Amino acid sequence: WLEFAEAWGGKYPAIVRLWENAWAEFTPFLAFDAEIRRVICSTNAIESVNARIRRAVRARGHFPNETAALKCIYLAVMSLDPTGQGRKRWVIRWKGALNAFDVAFDGRLTAGRK
């Protein structure tokens, strides 16, 4: 921490102050397994899905009822994976993280499946 402050404190004092103020909230994040940290930090996929949904809704304009809006959103989400191969990739990508979550949180993820 002090190395960071020495290296960047003169050029970016506001960032150093931000780190000092948020350090207590940030350090518990470092205690998680690397797989869990990777999942927490990867918001690109979520933002991509949100952008696709916004684009579909904006292109449609208005909806006569809630069912029509939900149908539009459903079709936008289903078009993200038209071949159906996404689930296989999802399982491979998340398997390590799900195992790490299960270990870190004492089986709370699998408790409902028994």
Score class of each variant (00 low, 15 high):
77 V>D: 08
45 A>V: 10
81 D>A: 01
69 A>H: 05
31 A>Y: 05
30 L>M: 15
69 A>Y: 11
101 F>M: 15
66 E>I: 10
6 E>P: 00
73 I>V: 15
11 K>Y: 07
96 G>A: 05
82 P>M: 07
88 K>R: 11
91 V>E: 14
35 E>R: 11
6 E>F: 04
32 F>N: 14
76 A>V: 07
94 W>L: 13
39 V>F: 11
28 P>E: 12
17 R>Q: 14
75 L>E: 15
75 L>Q: 15
56 A>M: 05
63 F>P: 01
9 G>A: 03
97 A>D: 04
15 I>G: 00
74 Y>V: 07
49 V>C: 03
28 P>Y: 13
48 S>W: 10
35 E>P: 00
82 P>W: 05
44 N>L: 07
82 P>H: 03
46 I>A: 11
56 A>K: 09
79 S>I: 00
38 R>N: 02
37 R>F: 07
44 N>A: 13
52 R>I: 08
23 W>H: 05
105 F>W: 13
97 A>V: 08
12 Y>N: 08
82 P>C: 04
96 G>H: 04
81 D>T: 02
63 F>H: 06
8 W>C: 06
103 V>Y: 03
106 D>A: 12
62 H>R: 13
91 V>L: 14
34 A>G: 05
80 L>H: 06
93 R>M: 11
24 A>P: 01
28 P>M: 11
94 W>F: 13
74 Y>G: 05
64 P>Y: 04
103 V>C: 01
19 W>D: 02
35 E>V: 01
84 G>V: 02
59 A>E: 15
43 T>R: 08
50 N>H: 10
12 Y>F: 13
51 A>Q: 13
100 A>D: 06
99 N>H: 12
11 K>A: 14
66 E>R: 13
64 P>F: 04
37 R>N: 06
6 E>Q: 10
96 G>E: 02
52 R>T: 15
83 T>N: 10
10 G>A: 02
84 G>Y: 04
81 D>R: 00
23 W>P: 00
26 F>T: 10
43 T>I: 09
34 A>K: 14
16 V>T: 13
56 A>T: 09
14 A>K: 10
68 A>Q: 10
59 A>F: 03
15 I>L: 13
53 I>V: 15
104 A>Y: 07
61 G>W: 09
60 R>L: 01
11 K>C: 06
52 R>W: 00
97 A>W: 09
10 G>P: 01
27 T>H: 04
64 P>T: 14
45 A>M: 05
13 P>F: 05
106 D>C: 05
24 A>H: 07
54 R>V: 10
98 L>G: 01
16 V>E: 07
27 T>Y: 08
19 W>Y: 12
30 L>C: 12
31 A>R: 15
65 N>A: 09
56 A>E: 14
100 A>N: 04
21 N>V: 11
85 Q>D: 15
95 K>R: 14
72 C>G: 02
77 V>Q: 07
18 L>T: 07
97 A>N: 06
45 A>I: 07
52 R>K: 12
16 V>S: 02
17 R>G: 03
76 A>T: 08
55 R>V: 02
46 I>Q: 12
96 G>L: 02
86 G>Q: 04
95 K>M: 10
35 E>Q: 11
14 A>Y: 01
102 D>P: 00
103 V>F: 04
94 W>Y: 14
93 R>E: 15
46 I>G: 03
97 A>T: 13
27 T>C: 03
55 R>C: 06
27 T>A: 09
103 V>M: 07
87 R>W: 14
20 E>I: 00
39 V>Q: 10
